[in-house]
Design a protein around this nucleic acid. Structure first.
Length: 894
RNA sequence: AGGCACGUAGCUCAGUGGAAGAGCACCGCCUUGACACGGCGGUGGUCGCCGGUUCAAUCCCGGCCGUGCCUACCA
């Protein structure tokens, strides 16, 4: 356009066509549109606005982390749903935020400090926390900046952090309430201890490393009365320093007379009772006698409780033998193992060893071998919370997609042990409990107490521990909406619509949100839980630094463009399948993007302004009905979380129907002189892109926006984000028009496509250049049917259909049941044509044999549905006719 | 050990109780006025194996084999 124009007063008849660039630049579009979208306020939710609520809370990434492919997938899928629902008129809120990630973050900062020669303990709690906050502030923006690169439409004005003021308040409220209800308690128990991280862990934070080569080492405990010995075996000989019993099966004839006697501990001055325990001991295994270390083994601990055994802790928090280990005190646990073995051998008590492949419990964070230790910690009572959480899914208040994940969820909740929620860390929500120095009473409160609630003493000391990170995450769906306040957000958006996450945190997070939501809100936190797979490399291997196959999403976006990047992930996201990231797949979607872009440029060549509504011709009606079907498929797919099928439906329609056929069909009208036909095609082309840009937008947001904004005459429509997602009813006019026009007539478009393909095949088979025009003759109704399609036949197959008899030299085709003769005068190669016909006839023979066999089966005829029977008979008749035609043609060949 | 998935074209995956589909790869031909990041045509599969139900099974059921994951692990 020429700003200001040329003067002269005459309005330009038509705007100068905006020259669309040859290629669409996804990242340039992103840079242009994203800031504008964010500034426009469309991302921001308004609970007082109309529309049914549709809310998703983001699975909060680690605040100091970086975006990885899992995040990219997770957030892309959320954005697809959010944009779809927003366009569909829902009152949408996508609430973003980050997690403080207790252990993980503390570790990173500790490591940084250690690199500078500073130890956390020397620094002290206050100063150390200062460093963590500093690190959070300096790196905390990364992840949200990277999320923005994905084009996600979250409500950034509502961004939350698990340790912000509001959420900290929710955490405290939750703790106090559960404490008052008796669901949080302090107890001394055997827990999982991380000797490197120096903190308690929950069961879930312990990972098992499989396939570790170890040994089973046997030794003898001499009976105290000197009458013999009992052989026991262990993978951890050093734990014998804490043995307080030997267990045998009460029915075991070898040992049952010994129950009640004692054995003598060779290193510590201790007589150890022999107890009978049918739960622990399997008579058939090993020697049938088991050493019992109640302070360092979960099974043994139970035995200790059952038999009131002493529980002797033998390790210090950092995994060294303590004063209970006699002369071994001060040795690291692995060093102690060697010494114990050597000393037992020296005493002649060694009774053999064998190799044993075992699994080792390791700390999820530090990797250290976890040590069961008796320790005083805070726990959450799980049974009363878990039961309703199981029921809610059983009764369908929350649905898992795919459904089978509910089994995983049930399996854990139905057998869940109390949750150890305290951590000996500094970074996290400090436990709101104060210990009285005078009477030892613990005061828990919403506000910091100044005096012991029991004795009034002012000698109070706050509990040193912080809460497990997942304690705050468990509240996320309602704490982020304002709980414990009764906010408009909470009223409008809770329960949320769907949670999208990976299967690895069903226990950690999904289950805990479920029971916390049910407990505090009385409703499930989300109606659906969509569990997506893992992003792997193209061979299906897990991405890992050691394999060197990690794809950095930001780098990938820079390289391939954000739209194709997203579509690649989305296109593979079905139900219960992992996503295999492949550059080939990226390329396919880049090509798709390019294909659409070129079709769009074609539109711009022929449509300069918004076309007036025009009555659609046969091709127009056809493509509009295809689009209508596609819209239905996309909606159904998205409603069932089949992102892959939605992507595929769009691809199929766009490439195979719109580009391969419709654009070609429309050319004669667009380039021609028939005003009505032209208007119909222009209007249809515009209508298709008007819908397609909206259909694509949730998946390829910037591409959709670019198509929408540059659609001729669409400037005032604003952003595609707030346009309506296509509905099937939009194309009712085409359906109605098509119904009137066809009135039961055969499907001319299908016949046309068949004819074009048949001629093309013939050409390819005969090696005939496309330039050579062909004539096809037909004496039947087909010529009438094709009467309106001569231009399409000419342009797409370079063939003319005329009424008439069979030429002397001709190839016979059967289209829609009628013989069509393609005049090959002068170019007919009898040999090749004979081959072709023979091949065709062979195929028909097989088909006829198959159909006849079926119809000859009495059981089929009597039991198959009548519709199928009729169809089969019709097919057979058609095949027989076709065969007759081709056989005659073969016979007639010179 | 138990549980849950999965096994369809060379690769990655859709699919349905009524004669097997896509992308990529491969083989021909084609620069035609949206597009060579393209067009047209084509090759390619006893739908893991064995039984059962059914008129009809790749699809439903049972068993087996193989792969992956989860949970619990025996001192």
């Amino acid at each position: 356009m020429y700003p200001g124009g040329e003067g002269g007063g005459a309005a330009l008849a038509a705007p100068m066509p905006t020259e669309l660039p040859q290629y669409y630049d996804s990242n340039a579009a992103a840079a242009r549109y994203y800031p504008e979208w964010e500034a426009s306020g469309v991302f921001s939710a308004d609970p007082s606005a109309p529309g049914e609520a549709y809310c998703i809370v983001i699975p909060p990434p680690n605040v100091t982390g970086n975006l990885h492919m899992g995040h990219a997938l997770n957030n892309t899928l959320q954005d697809v749903l959010i944009r779809y629902k927003r366009m569909d008129g829902y009152n949408v809120l996508w609430l973003p935020g980050t997690d403080h990630a207790g252990i993980a973050t503390q570790w990173v900062v500790e490591r940084q400090l250690r690199a500078q020669g500073i130890e956390r303990k020397e620094l002290g709690r206050e100063k150390f926390l200062g460093c963590v906050w500093e690190w959070k502030e300096s790196s905390g923006g990364n992840i949200v900046r990277q999320l923005r690169r994905l084009g996600v439409s979250c409500d950034w004005s509502r961004e939350r952090f698990t340790m912000d003021e509001g959420l900290s308040r929710a955490v405290r409220e939750n703790f106090v309430r559960l404490y008052e209800e008796g669901l949080i308690y302090r107890a001394t128990r055997l827990i999982n201890w991380d000797p490197v991280g120096l903190t308690a862990l929950s069961d879930l934070e312990v990972e098992t490393e499989e396939g570790v080569n170890g040994e089973i080492w046997s030794f003898a405990y001499p009976l105290s009365d000197g009458s013999g010995e009992i052989v026991v075996a262990t993978t951890r000989p050093e734990t014998m320093l804490g043995d307080t019993a030997v267990a045998v099966h009460p029915d075991d004839p070898r040992y049952k007379h010994l129950i009640g006697q004692t054995v003598r501990h060779p290193f510590v001055d201790r007589a150890i009772p022999i107890v009978g325990d049918s739960i622990l001991v399997d008579m058939a295994f090993g020697s049938g006698a088991v050493k019992v270390t109640p302070a360092h083994d979960f099974n043994d601990h139970e035995v200790g409780i059952r038999h009131s055994l002493p529980m002797i802790s033998i390790f210090t928090p950092d995994g060294k033998v303590n004063e209970n280990g006699g002369s071994y005190a001060g040795l690291d646990r692995f060093e102690a193992r060697k010494r114990v073995k050597a000393d037992l051998e020296a005493l002649g008590l060694f009774r053999g060893r064998k190799d044993h492949v075992m699994t080792l419990p390791k700390s999820q964070r530090s990797g250290a071998i976890v040590e069961p230790m008796i320790s005083t910690q805070w726990f959450m009572k799980m049974k009363p919370l878990a039961t309703p959480a199981v029921g809610a899914v059983e009764h369908g208040f929350t649905t898992f997609w795919p459904d089978q994940w509910k089994n995983t969820y049930f399996a854990w909740l139905k057998d869940v042990k109390d949750w150890c929620i305290s951590r000996q860390l500094w970074w996290g929500h400090r436990i709101p409990a104060w210990h009285c120095g005078t009477c030892q009473h613990v005061t828990v409160g919403r506000v910091d107490p100044t005096a012991c609630e029991k004795c009034g003493s002012a000698d109070l000391r706050q509990d040193e521990d912080v809460l497990d990170t997942w304690f705050s995450s468990a509240l996320w769906p309602f704490s982020t909406l304002g709980w414990p306040e009764k906010t408009p957000d909470l009223a409008k958006y809770y329960p949320t619509a769907v949670l999208l996450t990976g299967f690895d945190i069903i226990f950690f997070w999904v289950a805990r949100m479920m029971f916390m939501g049910l407990h505090h809100m009385g409703h499930v936190p989300f109606k659906d839980v969509y569990i997506h797979g893992l992003v792997r490399d193209e061979h299906g291997d897990k991405m890992s630094k050691t394999k060197g196959n990690v794809v950095d999403p930001v780098e990938a976006i820079d390289r391939v463009g954000v739209d194709a990047f997203r579509m690649t992930l989305t296109g593979m996201a079905g139900l219960g399948r992992d996503i295999l990231w492949s550059e080939k797949q990226v390329e396919a979607w880049s090509k798709f993007q390019n294909k659409v872009w070129n079709a769009y440029r074609f539109l711009h060549m022929h449509v300069r302004e918004r076309p007036a509504t025009a009555s659609p011709g046969p091709y127009d009606r056809w493509i509009l009905l295809c689009l209508d079907r596609c819209v239905g498929e996309v909606r159904a797919a998205l409603d069932g979380y089949r992102f892959d099928l939605a992507a595929s439906a769009i691809y199929q329609f766009t490439w195979y129907e719109l580009c391969d056929w419709y654009l070609e069909f429309s050319k004669p009208a667009l380039y021609g002189e028939d005003g009505a036909a032209k208007a119909g095609a222009q209007f249809t082309l515009w209508t298709v892109f008007h819908a397609l840009s909206r259909l694509i937008h949730p998946f390829m947001p910037f591409f959709g926006e670019e198509l929408w904004r540059n659609l001729p005459g669409n400037a005032e429509a604003g952003s595609v984000m707030v346009a309506n997602f296509p509905k099937r009813a939009e194309f009712d006019h085409a359906r109605a028009a098509d119904g009137v026009a066809r009135q039961g007539a055969p499907d001319a478009i299908a016949a046309l496509q068949e004819a074009i393909s048949a001629v093309r095949r013939l050409r390819a088979d005969k090696g005939l250049a496309a330039k050579i025009p062909l004539t096809a003759t037909n004496a039947g109704a087909l010529t009438t049917l094709f009467a309106g399609h001569s231009a399409a036949l000419r342009d797409l197959a370079n063939v003319t259909i005329a009424p008439g008899a069979r030429p002397d030299q001709a190839a016979v085709l059967v289209i829609a049941g009628e013989e069509v003769y393609v005049d090959l005068s002068g170019v007919l190669d009898s040999g090749k044509e004979r081959e072709r016909l023979t091949r065709e006839i062979e195929k028909l023979d097989k088909s006829i044999a198959f159909l006849e066999a079926r119809l000859g089966n009495e059981a089929f005829v009597s039991k198959a549905p009548p519709q199928l029977l009729a169809k089969t008979r019709g097919e057979l008749a058609g095949e027989v006719d076709k065969r007759a035609s081709l056989t005659a043609a073969l016979a007639a060949l010179p």
